[in-house]
Write a protein that binds this DNA or RNA. Structure first.
Lengths: 305, 305
DNA sequence: TTATAGCGATAGCTTTTTCTTATGATGAAT
DNA sequence: ATTCATCATAAGAAAAAGCTATCGCTATAA
């Protein structure tokens, strides 16, 4: 096994440049004997002499000359690697893969991504939108760096951080506008439109209504909050949506918003990542940006109404 | 200064391949802690983490992944360099710069180069033909690896090795064929054609005739042995040439060869190189090839006559 | 010629780095 | 709950790399 070291190559290169052991050693900030020894060792591992030590000067052999060409190439790429690594230190990280649940993504992301790109322009952001269980899986498999989901999760391997809590509001047809807000009990007898199985938001809504899980026949699955609202507008029932969705979803349908009087239902949105993730520090920072974006979104929504 | 070592890069690469500290350490033939420490140190000099140590597996970070790409490139070129160096060990040396004096070159070289190429096909041979003083200069400046000249030189910095000794023969016009060979004394009064100043062969011829150096008016300078012989053929005088030149030079002119009876003049041709040259061993080998080629040449010449 | 200065190699010793073994801590699996 | 697997840490041993001092050789100056 031919086993030279980068140090030896650096010393060698210096010696080719100076043609003088003493001066090359100075350039390497070591003593002349140290350089002598390393060059000698390099020659021994190569089983060929690199320099001819004349009384006048130190000259490269033909072999040494060809060797020097390749060594210079290698040293250059090593230095480039070091430069690149140094330059990369400032970047929070090159690529950030974020998972988001579908009941958050369309409302939060536009503003959030804008904010994130502003504060970390070099970031290569990738978004994955799917249900919580999938996100967790992919997170643990290292396919995602973080996920924005509804808390709590209680996954022992993940760090959770709460971002904000928002109310869930009742969406009903405009014709019901002004009517008294139904109680939870009354809700159970209304036609409650929900997302399909798998969405955490469905579970949250159901639990609010004290419906345990096996849903009554009155329920109808929809594939997105947007669809649900449109169906409400068509008079097919009522639904619950998180506050952040209000602005976007209620504009284009004849629906009105009602808040529950006591026991306001709410959900907590948070960010999670692997406890082992080396990005923890940066993710903590990013979570602040999410909070900020969400706050902006909330203000926008409340000013609308 | 970012100062990682080749070892660290090798360990890093192994860990990316195995995704497991223990197995990577095995692959590197070191203990697991040794690898752990080196990876940690690498991460510290980079001020960035390369791996995420999960409980399930060891995964590259985004930074580590990009780093790995560059590291693989570097390791590949280092290994290629080692391979190349190993392969070069067998070659006697890539490039061999040989100087030859003009009174040897045209006779010896054709056969010698053929022989040399046969025994060392990979050799990049370069020939320089000029007078001894120049050859010595260039040899000492490192522009030549060896020179074939007439001995002795007595340059303290050079190693001399004798190759062969050959007679000098008298070349005179055909009309003098059969006449008694002139003595040295008689030669002094004949029109002796010689090479111009600077050629060692001129000095040798003169010294044989006991002419010290300032040559008599009878002399006429020619630029090559070939020219001298042609001039002899034209009846302009006589000349001396080394035996190896006989075959080539006397064919195309009406001249005949005569050997001196006593005190046969001769010259010794040898090879020289810097005492410090790392090629000494190989040059010694090459000198044997020269001897062999010269012997072949001599046999050819004697069989001619 | 002898003296002197410059240069690289070598020797002996010290410091630094790297490795090994032993052990600790943590999460996963039985 | 225990055991196993895995990576990290600690302490001491081994190896590598460095320094100072000095040698031997050349070349230059006197």
């Amino acid at each position: 096994m031919m086993n030279f070291t980068l140090k030896q190559l650096r010393y060698f290169e210096a010696l080719t440049r100076h043609g003088h052991f003493g001066r090359a050693a100075d350039a390497c900030a070591i003593s002349q004997p140290a350089l002598s020894v390393q060059i000698k060792e390099l020659e021994q591992t190569l089983k060929a002499s690199l320099f001819e030590r004349g009384s006048k000067q130190v000259r490269l052999t033909a072999f040494g000359e060809k060797f020097a060409l390749r060594v210079r190439d290698i040293l250059r790429s090593v230095d480039e690697l070091a430069d690149w690594a140094r330059a990369s230190q400032n970047e929070i990280i090159g690529r950030l893969r974020i998972g988001v649940i579908p009941t958050v993504a369309p409302y939060l992301l536009p503003g959030f991504i804008k904010d994130l790109k502003r504060s970390h322009p070099e970031l290569d952001i990738r978004i994955r939108e799917t249900v919580t269980s999938r996100l967790i899986e992919e997170l643990e498999d290292g396919l995602l760096d973080t996920a924005i989901v509804a808390l709590p999760l209680s996954e022992p391997s993940l760090t959770e951080i709460a971002l904000f809590t928002e109310d869930l509001v009742l969406i009903r047809h405009n014709k019901d506008h002004g009517k008294p807000v139904p109680t939870q009990k009354e809700l159970q007898n209304m036609r409650l439109l929900l997302l399909e199985e798998g969405h955490c938001f469905r579970t949250q809504a159901l639990s609010f209504c004290n419906i345990l899980s096996a849903s009554p026949k009155e329920e109808l699955d929809g594939s997105s909050l947007s669809t649900l609202v449109q169906m409400v507008g068509a008079g097919m029932g009522v639904t619950l949506i998180p506050e952040m969705a209000v602005g976007v979803e209620t504009r284009s349908a004849p629906v009105s918003i009602a808040r529950f009087e006591n026991a306001q239902p709410a959900r907590t949105v948070g960010m999670v990542w692997r406890k082992t993730s080396p990005l923890s520090k940066q993710l903590m920072e990013i979570s602040k940006i999410v909070c900020h974006s969400a706050k902006g979104l909330r203000q926008q929504n409340t000013s609308d109404h």
